[in-house]
Design a protein around this nucleic acid. Structure first.
Length: 335
DNA sequence: AAATTTCCCAACCGCAGCTTC
DNA sequence: GGAAGCTGCGGTTGGGAAATT
């Protein structure tokens, strides 16, 4: 593996730092080189780790014959030299996963990267900052909250993203599966779930919403101890899914109930409401579901505004204030 | 063609959490 | 218990490439 960028400065006159010059605490005992890595350094590091495996990073530079600090070696390995890294542009599927997970966890790049095999947190972070962020803003969405931005606050700039062209598709937050993704990571305080009893969930009647049959396996969800039917809802005529406070989905009009907002708050906007007390293993389980696309499906690219219920937008994604500011349909000019 | 601006991304910095002694 | 060291993470920066003027 060689550096993709020319590294003249590193090769010609390496920048050396010492204790007086500052730098990492782990680097203060000896002079270390900084800046871009040369192919020779990469080779040394790869050779050493291949032979000895991963161990104490602080001792790697010494034994590998590198004038770098252990931290720098670790970063180089993780972000660039690791054999299992996937290089190249992000696919639209990866992009959608990033958006979905980011909506749940916020700027937890390492956590997001776990859903993308072969991608590093640094890569995800860079991709987000250079591409997705702008793309969301161009769609009128706040990249921090994933909520709609009032039209007068939006940037109208067009954004070209570096995504594999064959998989290019609109990336809207309005994927039903995305809502379920949200559900999975938030603490479910009201474990009441009503499962459609029909073989095919009624959601499928709406072409804009995607239902994955696997989702009916609620045993995978945390805090869901049982599946129970709700007496006041007929499974044959108006089946609904109540995902623990994340709204009742009525198949006839696909409207999420008003209680959606109570439980769903974008972490960037109302960080305190995002429950972090959930056991990690439960999060990981759910995270795995996202990665395996058990609950993640590509959205239907043929978005039809006429069949989209604004109540869904209101309850799940928009604050009351924002809703007040939306006075016309031009605020829903998606793509 | 040259100058300037913008974009992209590798690498750095500093902090927090964990482990060891 | 706490100091020191290590690791992981997120924010930021710097410089080269690409795009624009």
């Amino acid at each position: 593996m060689i550096n993709t960028k020319p590294n003249s400065s590193a090769e010609e006159e390496p920048l050396m730092i010492s204790e007086k010059m500052g730098g990492h605490r782990c680097c203060t005992k000896q002079k270390v080189k900084r800046g871009l890595w040369s192919p020779e350094e990469d080779e040394k590091l790869v050779t050493y780790i291949t032979a000895h495996g991963l161990g104490s990073w602080s001792s790697v530079p010494k034994f590998a014959g590198l004038q770098r600090c252990g931290k720098s070696c670790r970063l180089r390995w993780i972000n660039y030299l690791r054999p299992d890294l996937k290089r190249g542009t992000f696919t639209s599927e990866e992009e959608q996963i990033i958006i979905d997970v980011h909506r749940i966890v916020g700027n937890k790049w390492a956590q997001i990267a776990k859903h993308l095999p072969g991608r590093t947190d640094n890569e995800v972070k860079n991709f987000w900052n250079s591409c997705i962020k702008k793309k969301l803003m161009s769609q009128g969405l706040d990249p921090n909250t994933h909520n709609l931005i009032p039209s007068h606050q939006r940037a109208s700039k067009k954004v070209a993203c570096n995504v594999s062209p064959n998989h290019q598709q609109p990336n809207s937050v309005f994927t039903l599966n995305s809502q379920f993704t949200d559900v999975s990571t938030f603490e479910m305080k009201t474990p009441i779930i009503t499962v459609p009893e029909t073989d095919q969930p009624p959601l499928l009647q709406n072409p804009n919403l995607v239902w994955n049959q696997s989702f009916t396996d609620f045993s995978s969800f945390p805090h869901v101890s049982s599946v129970e039917s709700t007496p006041n809802i007929s499974s044959s005529s108006s089946s609904s899914v109540n995902l623990s406070g994340f709204g009742v989905l009525n198949h006839e009009n696909c409207v999420w109930g008003a209680n959606t907002l109570e439980s769903f708050e974008a972490p960037g906007l109302e960080g305190e409401q995002y429950t972090l007390t959930q056991p990690q293993q439960e999060k990981d389980k759910v995270s795995e579901m996202v990665t395996n696309k058990v609950i993640h499906q590509p959205m239907d690219t043929s978005f039809d505004g006429s069949s989209f219920d604004l109540g869904f937008v209101d309850s799940s994604l928009m604050s009351d204030i924002m809703y007040d500011e939306l006075s016309s349909m031009d605020d829903f000019a998606w793509n």
